[in-house]
């Protein structure tokens, strides 16, 4: 920590007040409410309700559909994370290497960052449109009749593809800036040391990118689990049907569409615990790394 420079007793309180009060009202209070209502079954209008203990949680664990959604969420998260990281890295390595047109490529590969997930969803809807969507036709050309909204796996594929597309730029930006911060001397030494460029990449560059990659791993998991809401909501057009969905979307479907406040809150709490675990994992790893270096 930096040495403290000023010591006014009321000044820091005043400075922190806006942030802390917003956090209390809009963060702790709702989080606490979620926890509380996960133990109740409540009439949506708020007239009547019953305390049910852990029943909302038990119902979820006994529900085979919740398990199925969890499995899809896992597949979804792993695919989106892996492919968007892989594409981001590939483009970053190449953009770092070329001399001609580097900045043009950079711009072209990063601007999608600014596209909102639901807008990406709209693009997905039109590309995967039943019958005459461009990608639908492409699949048709290769002999697969692709029907979004009907075939569970087709819909899953479309959701994953659009989510990857939206996430590539941020990974690209981070990897590129990671690569460019590798000191010139190391690069030149590596060139002398290692014959093939791919060998050079895996032995020298990749380890240097590891901290970035690790940070991005967490960011991408969070993205896939939570920020893809807009993509999913738009692409499913608010009709869950027999389509795949993520756990976050399920919170919305049960809570807002269905008015099941208790069940939805219990799902929220489960997600909170999941994020908590993820964060602890992240910090322990960072701690260890700091410890050994």
């Amino acid at each position: 920590m930096k040495r403290a420079a000023f010591s006014s007793p009321w000044m820091p309180v005043l400075l922190l007040l806006p942030q802390v009060s917003i956090i209390f009202v809009f963060f702790y209070w709702p989080a606490f409410e979620a926890l509380e209502s996960s133990f109740y079954l409540q009439d949506p209008f708020g007239f009547t309700g019953t305390f049910v203990g852990f029943e909302n949680y038990l119902t979820l664990f006994q529900n085979s559909e919740y398990l199925r959604i969890s499995i899809f969420t896992l597949v979804f998260t792993v695919s989106v994370t892996f492919f968007s990281l892989a594409f981001g890295l590939l483009f970053a390595v190449k953009a770092d290497k070329v001399i001609r047109g580097a900045s043009t490529y950079k711009t072209l590969l990063m601007w999608v960052y600014a596209v909102a997930p639901p807008v990406a969803g709209i693009l997905g809807v039109s590309l995967f449109y039943q019958g005459h969507g461009l990608i639908t036709q492409l699949f048709g050309f290769f002999g697969h009749e692709f029907v979004i909204g009907v075939n569970y796996y087709d819909t899953g594929f479309a959701l994953i593809a659009v989510s990857i597309w939206k996430q590539v730029p941020i990974n690209f930006i981070f990897f590129l800036s990671g690569l460019q911060s590798v000191p010139r001397s190391i690069r030149e030494a590596a060139m002398i040391d290692n014959r093939s460029s791919s060998g050079r990449f895996w032995t020298i560059t990749f380890p240097l990118l590891a901290p970035t990659a690790f940070f991005l791993l967490i960011t991408n998991i969070t993205y896939a689990m939570f920020d893809t809401f807009g993509v999913i909501d738009v692409m499913l057009r608010s009709e869950p049907g027999n389509n795949p969905m993520t756990l976050t979307y399920k919170v919305y479907v049960d809570g807002f569409r269905g008015g099941d406040l208790g069940g939805s809150s219990a799902q929220s709490v489960i997600l909170m615990l999941l994020v908590l675990a993820l964060t602890i994992f992240q910090f322990r790893l960072i701690e260890r790394r700091i410890h050994y270096t």
Partner: peptide
């Protein structure tokens, strides 16, 4: 909770028709 019941029906009917 009939909205959810309909969701369950839609889901299962979809699975019948796609042979799942």
């Amino acid at each position: 909770f009939y909205v959810q019941i309909r969701d369950v029906m839609n889901r299962e009917y979809g699975r019948i028709l796609t042979g799942e």
